[in-house]
Amino acid sequence: MILPALNFPKKPADMNRRDFLKSGGAVATLALAPGVTLMAFGGQASAAADPGKRWGLLIDVNKCPSDCSACVSACKVENGWGNDKHAADHPEAAPQWIRKVSLTDKSTGREFALPVMCQHCENPPCVDVCPTNASFKRPDGIVLVDKHRCIGCRYCMMACPYKARSFVHEDVTDQKTHAPRGKGTVESCTLCVHRVDAGGAPACVEACNTTGNAAMLFGDLNDPDSEIAQALKAYPSVAIRDDLGLNPGVRYSNL
């Protein structure tokens, strides 16, 4: 039986569920994990999470000037945080998806700075401790919070060795459609999953390149031919709190 209609380009209304999912269209992250839906990460994503990939970052500390915070500013703009009503007068309660940390070696006096965000661990403690499975790791290694499942218990914040997670303490406005936020839930760096799914790079990496510093390298750690994998193979790098055995997807060189 021939169904000629199938040969015509479809309008969205004609798409069945399979087509819709295959297209990776409106809600690509529907296929993130069984039973997990994320209204958030929509947009024109080109593919769902690929279990064959492991997205990661390599940050060259030598190329990261202490006075530069382009990555932080870009993340704020991209994901719509940092302008909450009490962010200025209660900085300790304001969410912080990515921050610049300044370090001084106590024995040598060497000073430098580096950005710290969710390290997208292979064995994320936040996912282990989350009672409702709101914290989850995508097959491609990106660690996210399902804002619809998060009950706001903050146990993941207690468990995270990197202080990478924030609790939203007040009403939020002007949210981005690709990065929903909610009072009473926990949030953190998404590795700009909406960009990654569309084939792009995180906003922080893009901003770092724009400054000319190019201290951040983004890519697939599983692909031996990728630039990040080649760099990791060629030069020494470390993970923060490597002793915990979490195998973070974010690595630092010259630390």
Partner: peptide, 8 residues
Amino acid sequence: GYQVTSGF
């Protein structure tokens, strides 16, 4: 081994 500061 490091002295640490940040805006957070």
